Simulated scan of single mutants.
Amino acid sequence: MKRVDIVIAAHNPQRRIDRAVSSIVNGNPEARAVVVCHNTSISSITATLDPVLVEGTTFLELNDSIPSPSGPFMFGMRQSKAEYVSIMGSDDQLEPGAVAAWLELADRYSADSVITRLTRGESRTLVRSPAARPWARGILDVYRDRLPYRSAPLGLIRRTALETLQLELTPGARNGGDLEFVSRLWSGGRVVYQKSGPGYVEMADADDRVTHVAKPVTEELAPLTGLLSSAWFSEQTKRTRRALAVKAYRRTVVDTIIKRPRVEDWSAEDLSTLAQIAAALHRIGISPFLSLAESRLLAAVMNSRVADFSAGVAAAKKYRSPAAIGGTHPLSWASPIGSFRYTVASALMR
């Protein structure tokens, strides 16, 4: 038995699953490729692969008629008996030696999770998250190392942590299904970050990812609403709740606005849902950590001033502007999750 099972969800025989499987079989011998054929037959997927790749891969079948990656990923991880599990997009790939690098870190620090070094596309553009402290080594902290900004559990997960930390991808979610999963893992597990070496490459050459399909805001943000209203979230420390909430505003809320650049893209229901979520984040106490531009955008969202959304996002992301770097509260400058230190730490990532 190999130490790592890497679960790939395959629902479309037209996708480049051969690239993902080959990167495991041919470049990472410490791992086993486990392909969950989701709402499609095993034969339809194996027909697209070289026989050598088929021989070196385990295939499972899940028919649940639900267009969500949560189901096949959890199905594959629960079937595993390996020491560690991992999930992988069917379009993506691992660099040769990535799994060995992860295992070395996991063994050195007795980690529950190793967050992989993540790059995108053929150009291997570095994904600047999490913006951990540059000097930090070993086990990281959810607040001081800004772990919530890594929104997908890519890398290694100790299989037993699925039960001990009660990790589950949100059933049925077409996007954001990993939000509560990583929130629990980053907050409660022993987590390390792979800052260098071979890692995970996220590709973007498929046009049918369910997470990219436009959806009503209520559905799109349902995982965030579920997290904020969960018993688990209410039991966390104030610093953990704020670390998660600040990230949710900067990424989840702002990304929702970016997807809808025109006033006519917003329905009354969409605006109401977004305003309610923004108000909930405000009550958690995110405002002191925000830059001046982020604070102005938050006020526009809470009051559904849709005409101000696009300009507000542009101002918040203009990182060379003083208004986008710091706010009026000292915490926006001094806190690890404040706008100033977050911006600097992101810029320092190499």
Rank of each mutant, 00 (worst) to 15 (best):
V191G: 08
P288E: 07
R242P: 12
L298R: 08
W186S: 03
P336L: 05
E122Y: 04
V213G: 05
L126V: 01
W102D: 09
A33N: 02
P67C: 00
V213W: 12
A131L: 01
E83Y: 07
T328R: 12
E30R: 14
S234I: 14
T343F: 04
P322W: 00
L169I: 08
A347N: 02
E294L: 04
G326K: 04
I6S: 01
G138I: 08
G138V: 12
D112T: 00
D178I: 04
T218L: 13
P13E: 07
N303P: 01
A347P: 09
S287M: 10
A33L: 00
D265M: 02
L94A: 03
A20V: 01
S229I: 10
R320M: 07
V4K: 01
A82G: 02
G197N: 05
P148C: 06
L147G: 03
V344T: 06
P130H: 12
E55T: 08
A206T: 14
I115V: 15
S110E: 15
G76C: 07
R305I: 11
G27E: 03
S22A: 12
V253D: 00
P51H: 02
W135K: 14
A111G: 14
D145V: 05
P153F: 05
S295V: 12
A323K: 07
G176E: 02
A10G: 04
M349W: 13
A334L: 14
V54H: 07
R16T: 01
A347L: 10
A33T: 01
E220G: 07
G327C: 02
E264N: 01
A152P: 06
M77S: 01
V35P: 03
G285E: 15
A132S: 15
S230G: 10
E202R: 15
V301R: 08
R78P: 02
L147N: 03
P198D: 10
A106Q: 07
V192E: 14
T125Y: 08
G226F: 02
F73E: 05
H282I: 15
A316S: 13
G312M: 11
G338I: 06
A316E: 00
K2R: 11
D91F: 01
R32Q: 03
T57G: 00
L281M: 09
S113F: 13
Y249S: 09
S335R: 11
Q236G: 03
L348G: 14
G121F: 00
E235V: 07
P148V: 03
G76E: 04
F233C: 11
F181T: 00
Q93D: 08
P96T: 04
W135R: 15
F73N: 13
S339H: 03
I8N: 01
S321W: 06
R146E: 09
